[in-house]
C-alpha cells in the first residue's frame, strides 16, 4: 500500500507497517507506527489499510498505532531508499551514535555539492536542499 504523502514507496518500504496478523476467525489486526508524533497522514493510512483489506474480502479489520520502539529512518528498506532517490527525494543517511551531517547527494545530478536551504520542508520528515551544481532544489528525507 502506497504512503499517502510519498506514493512511490509503500508503508512496508518505509518501515511504518509493523505487523499484520489474522486470527482464526479471519479478523485482521494491523500495527502501524508514525514517523513523527504529529504525522497528519496517520489517519489516512489507517483508512487506506481498512479500505484495501475490506475490498480484499476481510470483513473485520482494525488498525492499532504503536509508538514503541520508536520509528527510525534506519527502518526504511533498501528498496525504499532506492525508490525515494529515483523519485527525487534524497534518502536519509544511516543514523549513528553521534549526530553528524553528511553531505547530501543531489538526486537529480548526483553531485555532492549541495546546501540546505530550509531545515523544515513540506512534511515533517523532510528538509529542503539546493544543488549548487545543477541548481535544482530537492527534498531530503531527514535522518531520524
Amino acid at each position: 500500500m502506497p504512503d499517502p504523502e510519498i506514493p512511490v514507496v509503500t508503508i512496508e518500504d518505509l518501515g511504518i507497517l509493523r505487523d499484520v496478523t489474522e486470527d482464526d476467525r479471519g479478523w485482521v489486526h494491523v500495527q502501524v507506527t508514525p514517523t513523527y508524533s504529529g504525522c497528519p497522514a496517520m489517519d489516512a493510512i489507517a483508512d487506506d489499510v481498512v479500505e484495501r483489506l475490506t475490498r480484499a474480502g476481510y470483513l473485520h479489520v482494525d488498525v492499532e498505532f504503536v509508538l514503541s520502539p520508536a520509528w527510525s529512518t534506519d527502518d526504511i528498506s533498501a528498496a525504499g531508499l532506492a525508490k525515494l532517490a529515483a523519485y527525487g527525494i534524497a534518502p536519509p543517511s544511516p543514523t549513528g551514535p553521534v549526530a553528524l551531517t553528511l553531505s547530501v547527494r543531489c538526486p537529480q545530478c548526483g553531485s555532492l555539492d549541495t546546501r540546505e536551504s530550509s531545515r523544515f520542508g513540506s512534511t515533517a520528515c523532510k528538509s529542503l536542499w539546493v544543488c549548487n551544481a545543477c541548481r535544482e532544489p530537492f527534498d531530503h528525507f531527514k535522518a531520524l
Binding site: 513523527y36 508524533s37 504529529g38 536551504s117 531545515r119 523544515f120 520542508g121 513540506s122 515533517a124 529542503l128
Partner: peptide
C-alpha cells in the same frame, strides 16, 4: 516563508506528542 514552515512543523510535533 521557510520559518512559517519550520514553526508549523514544530507545532505539529508538539501537537502529536500532546495527542498521545
Amino acid at each position: 516563508l521557510e520559518e512559517d514552515v519550520a514553526l508549523a512543523n514544530i507545532g505539529l510535533d508538539q501537537l502529536g506528542q500532546a495527542r498521545s
